[in-house]
Design a binder for these strands. Structure first.
Lengths: 216, 216
DNA sequence: TATTAAATAGCGCATTTGCGTGATTGTCAT
DNA sequence: ATGACAATCACGCAAATGCGCTATTTAATA
């Protein structure tokens, strides 16, 4: 069932059985065409380079022998930026997930995914989505929550927050006064109160705290 | 098909048809029991409080009339911390997604999800996963990549980075000099170079840039 | 070998900052 | 009406900062 306008898929997977099974499933799907199935990232990269081949989608095993899975992503992305990469993995190897994401992978599935899921994932990446296994999504969310910490409240008043913003933007007291049409002394007083509430003694201390704890 | 050990589901959704359809689907599923279906978060909260009811799962529409969808999450979580919340939404309204996540939602689906998808999502949240629509996952990933941005490089030398760290931690020039066993003047010179490379003219400017662009 | 970059150190000075110690006005809830 | 807060304004001063200009030593690199 080859099709001129089929979605061009590359498969990189060292396990023979899994590779053959999956490429079979792909080729039996309408509009999907698995032109090559490689057993290593190196081989895939070689062919992509030699034939200037830019697959629509690359299904990439993260636990490949030889080249690091993460390194492969970068190489592939530099060789063919438009190709969408969907990672396949057995373990939900925590750390690699995030590095893969930052390297430019568009999707992240576990190998126990059903053929249907994988096919569906391939179609949705092409529509700009990022199919992700729910367990992996959980890890992403957890880290996300940690990064987006609770906007700690130090009892800053509206005016104080306003002035703190200008402080973060590098304004001097004189400039803040001019901007807000206030006396220099008023700004000075507000700064003192901000310092006290934030328990700092310098403007950089206040700026650091404001940025670290997202007080704006 | 009521079952003593069924998963206890609450549904909060203002659209009558959608609510009735979905609760029907849930109740026809083995091991799932939709005890109550509310049309507003207020009503759900009232019943949960009065009956001390802690559902296993709460399917929550984000676009409810009355109480804010995000606010509902917080209230529910404080009333029943163990309940898993799966958000349902029509639009992928960017901003709310992140706030919902940070408020403690465990899953995020679009309303066009198939009954099968929703059922499957409910089972996977209970196993500790975070089922997420691929389009929403994309948004999370994009923000994630931005947060874990490429540590912009301003040509700072090792010593300069070291001093910049101390700057962010609120040290004065004198303190930095003492810490690094350097002359006050040396620290001063380093600071000048840092300022020049970062294109700022104050220590708070440097601190802000360092934190905003993660130069440490 | 010559050049460049990094790290070190110094002097002088105008400006800015942080802080002690005040005060006045308006609002809002008790 | 009586505090409690928020927001405003003021003087003075020691300390810290930012910056112009200069200079030495070492390590790397062309």
């Amino acid at each position: 069932m080859t099709n001129e306008h089929a979605i061009d898929v590359a498969l990189v997977e060292d396990n023979d059985l899994f590779r053959k099974t999956l490429s079979g499933v792909i080729n039996r799907s309408p509009n999907l065409n698995c032109r090559h199935a490689f057993e290593s990232a190196e081989k895939a990269l070689r062919v992509m380079e030699r034939e200037e081949w830019a697959p629509d989608i690359i299904l990439l095993d993260i636990g490949l022998p030889g080249m690091n899975g993460i390194a492969s992503i970068s190489k592939i992305k530099s060789l063919s930026p438009a190709s969408k990469i969907i990672m396949l993995t057995i373990h939900d190897d925590d750390d690699n997930v995030f590095r893969a994401i930052c390297s430019g992978a568009s999707g992240y599935l576990l190998k126990d995914a059903s053929p249907h899921e994988i096919i569906h994932a391939m179609k949705s990446v092409l529509q700009g989505a990022a199919p992700m296994n729910a367990y992996i999504a959980k890890k992403v969310l957890d880290l996300f929550r940690k990064l987006a910490a609770p906007p700690a409240h130090y009892g800053l008043t509206g005016r104080e927050k306003e002035i703190l913003k200008l402080l973060v933007d590098g304004f001097s007291k004189k400039q803040i006064a001019a901007t807000l049409f206030l006396s220099y002394h008023t700004v000075d007083t507000h700064l003192r109160n901000i310092y006290q509430k934030l328990e700092v003694h310098t403007r950089s201390g206040a700026v650091a705290k404001a940025l670290k704890e997202r007080l704006l």
